[in-house]
Structures are given as C-alpha cells and as structure tokens.
Amino acid sequence: MNKKGLSTPYVIWMAIFVVAPLILVVVYAFTSKSGGFTFENFSGMLQYAGIFSNSFLLAIIATAICLAIGYPLSYFLAKESATIRKVAMIFIMLPMWMNFLLRTYAWMSILEDTGLFNRLLALLGLPTLHIINTNAAVVIGMVYNFLPFMILPIFSVIEKIDRSVIEAAQDLGANSVMVFKRVIFPLSLPGVLSGITMVFIPAVSTFVISKLLGGGMTWLLGDLIENQFLGNVYNPHLGSAISLVMMIIVMICMAVMNRFGEGEEGAVVL
C-alpha cells in the first residue's frame, strides 16, 4: 500500500473544511443578497472606520502591555533554577486552560463599580474608579487572557540561549547592558515576534471580552462580525467582507513585522 495514500482522507477533509470555507468568505464578501457581484460590502464599510481603528488600537495597547510584562518576566524566569522554571511554567499555563469566559467573568465581578477592586480602594481610603464598561476594562481583560501567550514563546526561546554565547560576550568585554542588547535580545526576537502574533490576533478579533467587560459600550471588530452572522441584522455578506478585510490587515501587519524581525535565523516559531 502506498504510504502517501494515508493522508488522502485528511487532504480531502482540509479541502472541504479549511479551504472551501475561506473561499466562501471571499465569495460572500463580493456578492450581494441577490447573488450578484458587488463592491457594496466594502464601500459600506467606511462607516465602521471607528470600530476598525478602536479594535486595532486596543489590541496594540494590550499587546504592548503584554510584551512589557511578559518579556522581563520570561527573562527573570530563565535565570531561575530548573525546578522553579518548571513549576512557574505550570502556574502560568494553568489559568490558560481554564475557560476564558470564566476568567473574563471573574474580572466583571472585580471591576464593577461596587466590586472588589473598588472596595479595596475604599478600604485604603482612595477614591473609587469607574472601570467596568470602559476601554480600560477591555484592555485589562485582553492582557489577563492573553499574557501567557506572550510569556510562553519568549521564555522558551530565552531558556534555550546557549550560556557559552553570553559568557563569550562577557569575556570579550561586554557589560550586562551590552550583553542584553547585542546577544540576548536579538536571539530572543523570534519568540517576541510569535508572542506578539499570538496576543494580537485573538485581541483584535475578540467579541466576548468587549461584550462582558465593555458592556456593549465598546464595539470591536469581533462584535461587528458576530452581529452580522448571529445578531439581528443577519448580513453574512457584509460580515464576510469585514472578516476578509480584518484578515488581510492582520496578514499585512504580520508580514511587515516578520520582515522587520528577519536577519537573525528567521522566526523559529510559527
């Protein structure tokens, strides 16, 4: 029997369930409800420019915060002993495996006006803050949910950096700042890039976080798409067009970023 034939069922499966659906998205995006070819779905999208920019802005902020927390954390962690590293990794992954709806729901009760965070502030004699149903709450939700996706790839790259490379740099007279700038950071770049990808994509396309923590005040691209497919407006043609545009913008961002990150050995992960 031909061994290659073993993959035939899955190749057919991919054609039907991976390739065909994406082609359908493109087809729907360029057709109207009556079935004719049209650009209307795209020209009508201009009214949603605000939602587009808001989505990308919040996703960029959340990704930047994740990077600002995740990079130093991975860096410090890599210096710890093997046991601490292993235990820490399990602790970082554990919340990630809990359903993210529940994690987001938890923040609802913390950030509420009469929630635990404000109670804590009041207890300390500080003025309370209105956080729930604002962009800030949405960003907190994104950071909380996606932080592990930033830590894991960066950590796994830094952990693998050959100690002797760092020692060689020190022997050659580099101080710790220079070692970081010239050796560790460039070597960890692939991890940083895949971390950014893995935080940015779910952040820009979320609709749950904005619904639960934004309270419908903050509409993101995900909400817009969801509304076209399962909401009361039901317009899969417009929904497909928005999905397509989002996909293309994300793809361009990733391509630009990966180009910028090339030069070393290229991205190892993803």
């Binding site: 359908l24 396309s205 995900g222 929904g239 996909m247 994300v250």
Partner: peptide, 16 residues
C-alpha cells in the same frame, strides 16, 4: 486553522 483568528474559522465554517 491554528493561525487564523477563531472567529474567522467559526464564521467561515458557518458559511460552509
């Protein structure tokens, strides 16, 4: 399916 945003995978399968 791994790289695409989940909402895109979901929506495209729904269309199918």
């Amino acid at each position: 399916p791994l790289i695409n945003a989940d909402i895109i995978t979901g929506v495209s399968l729904m269309l199918l």
